[in-house]
Design a protein around this nucleic acid. Structure first.
Lengths: 127, 127
DNA sequence: AGTTTATTGTTATAAAATAACATTATGTAA
DNA sequence: TTACATAATGTTATTTTATAACAATAAACT
């Protein structure tokens, strides 16, 4: 269990408290009062947090969310549903889907390391 | 069957001929001699081509590939494997996986429209 | 303590995407 | 065919996202 450095902790806290994915520059503007002033500081922390599996990047949105999956300490596989109406992003906890997809990748002849899956549509509330 | 406009055709041809995903500004530099001079012209064509399902965006790479799936004329569902060594990107033709995933989304309570799936690892050659 | 390794701070810049507005082309319906 | 609407294009400027490069600190190791 890796401990976070100061910058990593500050940035993780903000992402973790947020109810929605945060963009790097939104994070930046929220931590400038704490002395984190420049983009590289944010991006470096984000990179490490992703490596540790503490956060994930929503590629289609260039935004970052805390991992909801308590067992997820390596960022091996991520799956999200994204509502095109209310923009809600939900992490799909995914033992089944994960098993299915890793199997699929192996069959396809790939030495599989991770995947990223993003569903788009309307969430329960919006449909 | 929709016909392409001049700019769309030029840009589709370049993507279609390429053996690898192309970035918007790479495309731009390749079409400037044909009179397409500015980013918006490229991005507009890309957006339309995506709508038509002629190309897909590899979100994790900000790059674009022609659709390999002849039946794919709506960009409903995309799946790619990306080799982290040689950078090869392959579209996975995906009736099974597609069925599985759309089922999965429905069960999760989502009104599903499309998904994007990106596998990372080592391809056959590189592993 | 001295050395390596990781993290941080900082400035500048690169890369990716879009806003805004003027212009031209295409389709369509009286 | 003319008038109107719609779509596509051209253009300039700007915004947004991400990284290069290098100096300074801090932490971990022997």
């Amino acid at each position: 269990m890796q401990t976070l450095t100061r910058n990593q902790q500050i940035i993780f806290d903000i992402i973790n408290k947020s109810s929605e994915p945060l963009k790097a520059y939104t994070i930046l503007s929220n931590v400038q009062k704490k002395g984190i002033k420049a983009p590289p500081q944010v991006y470096r922390a984000l990179d490490k947090l992703i490596e540790m599996g503490k956060i994930h990047k929503i590629e289609s949105k260039n935004a970052f969310v805390a991992c909801q999956n308590s067992s997820c300490n390596v960022s091996k596989a991520t799956a999200f549903s994204i509502c095109e109406s209310c923009e809600e992003v939900t992490e799909i906890s995914n033992s089944k889907i994960s098993k299915y997809l890793s199997n699929f990748a192996e069959k396809a002849g790939m030495e599989y390391k991770k995947y990223n899956l993003e569903f788009f549509g309307l969430c329960k509330k919006c449909k």
